[in-house]
Design a protein around this nucleic acid. Structure first.
Lengths: 260, 260
DNA sequence: ATAATATGTGTTACTTTGACACAATAATAA
DNA sequence: TTATTATTGTGTCAAAGTAACACATATTAT
């Protein structure tokens, strides 16, 4: 519905996008030891919704997902991965408020056509993104009021099947943790081992042993310990680490574990 | 295009199915120590294609995939799982031969409408299935000549991006091997340990140590050794095993490995 | 009988994991 | 200044899991 921050006519929305298919984004961020998700507040309901949108006629899925992510967060070149397609027949109608749509778009002469288009059943392809919390400037789109981070464990009431989409994303993320490095995208450049551990604990929803965690992480050979320590905090100053980009990328490709 | 083995009018195809979205099936079978995939030969080309089809308006993705699988294999209630959505903008046109379509459907008065519909860009959702080779009776649909098993390592020339879809399915299958039991769906009820090992070796594309493999498999506690041995074969008679349905199902749910 | 081939089972060294303890450090309070 | 406190850094040890490997046994072919 939005293009370069400019509203395009409803007719063009129909003409330029694939029918019946949408993309929804589960954007994960990590802040103050909490795993957060970016949510939009719809104008017509009290519910919240995942950021998302449609796929242009000439656009690949990945490209569409990247464009939509970038329009909400300003970010580009971040970790973004398709994880599941959701297609229950009744998932769409729960998503829309017809009366509201009519009011909202009454100015446009193609309103009826558009409303018919958008009320059709949609299949949505879920992508999840890992982004650095502090670098994101959430921007609502033209049809939503707010764009806010929400703690993944204190989610508000969500539209349609978005709750279930988030749960699937989280489940996927937890699985990925086992054979892919994560953190480069969720943490600032420099971070401490306890911070990295806290990220893992938050995603997994359970506590880990400090010493065993450190041993395991270091064994992956994707971390570089910096000569400086983080001072100013309370108590003993922890070492700072950064990811070694090269070995991190390699680990992304080949996986962390030797499986079978 | 097919419903209860009856051809429905082209108009109904458009009316009853979601536009722009299709399903493709990668059906794995195991026979004589070879991993096989079910392929259809198209009427219009020398190429082969994955079995697939469209999603009815009131049908969930899983239901559609099951219906399509059942219409090709006669099988129901088998392992069938969504693994990826494919949506390159040019994936569709490579898939269709306009001249052929015109000839083929010229009888139907809605041919033009249908051809326009089917030439639009399609996003396809890939499902992979694990089935017992011997129980499958491949049936071609009305618009394909043959339905045949093909060795996964000796695939013929495939339409559009179907080669890449298969590769992604295989990659997914290899990953699943690490935390999900497989075999119940690919092997006959009773089988020997060497047969099970051969299945794993074929999927992974590498050899495994006999003794270590057996130890690992048995440690999963999903196998039951039968008192009988398989006689009649050459050399020493191997024991027969079968999967314990209950613990197999449980392992499917909870995963084989304790990860993190 | 003997050879050939595949199956069943066991052992050993090595690596990884889980559970746990103590020393070092930086801020704070006395 | 010194002691206290909370947190970080590092090490150890037992248990479990894995990789590499050897020998006995059963069946067929000669």
């Amino acid at each position: 519905m939005e293009e370069n921050n400019e509203i395009v006519s409803l007719k063009n929305v129909i003409a330029n996008n694939l029918p019946s298919v949408s993309i929804d984004l589960v954007v994960f961020g990590f802040h103050e030891n909490h795993l957060k998700i970016l949510l939009l507040k719809t104008l017509d309901k009290e519910n919240w919704t995942l950021p998302g949108g449609f796929i242009k006629n000439d656009e690949s899925l990945d490209l569409a997902a990247n464009r939509l992510l970038s329009s909400r967060t300003g970010l580009d070149q971040v970790f973004l991965q398709q994880f599941h397609a959701f297609g229950d027949p009744d998932r769409t109608k729960l998503n829309r408020n017809i009366e509201f749509l009519k009011k909202q778009f009454s100015i446009d002469k193609h309103a009826d056509e558009f409303i018919e288009w958008i009320l059709k059943r949609f299949i949505t392809i879920g992508f999840y993104a890992l982004v650095e919390f502090t670098e994101v400037k959430p921007v609502p789109d033209a049809y939503t009021i707010e764009c806010q981070w929400h703690d993944v464990h204190e989610l508000p009431s969500l539209v349609s099947d978005h709750q279930s989409i988030i749960e699937t994303a989280l489940k996927t993320l937890r699985q990925q943790l086992n054979y892919q490095p994560i953190g480069l995208n969720l943490l600032p450049q420099k971070f401490t081992m306890p911070e990295l551990q806290s990220l893992y604990e938050t995603i997994l929803g359970k506590n880990l042993d400090r010493r065993n965690f450190q041993r395991k992480m270091l064994s992956y050979k994707i971390l570089e310990r910096l000569p400086v320590k983080r001072t100013g905090g309370a108590y003993k100053a922890p070492y700072l680490y950064k990811f070694d980009k090269e070995s991190y990328e390699e680990a992304l490709q080949s996986g962390l574990k030797d499986l079978w």
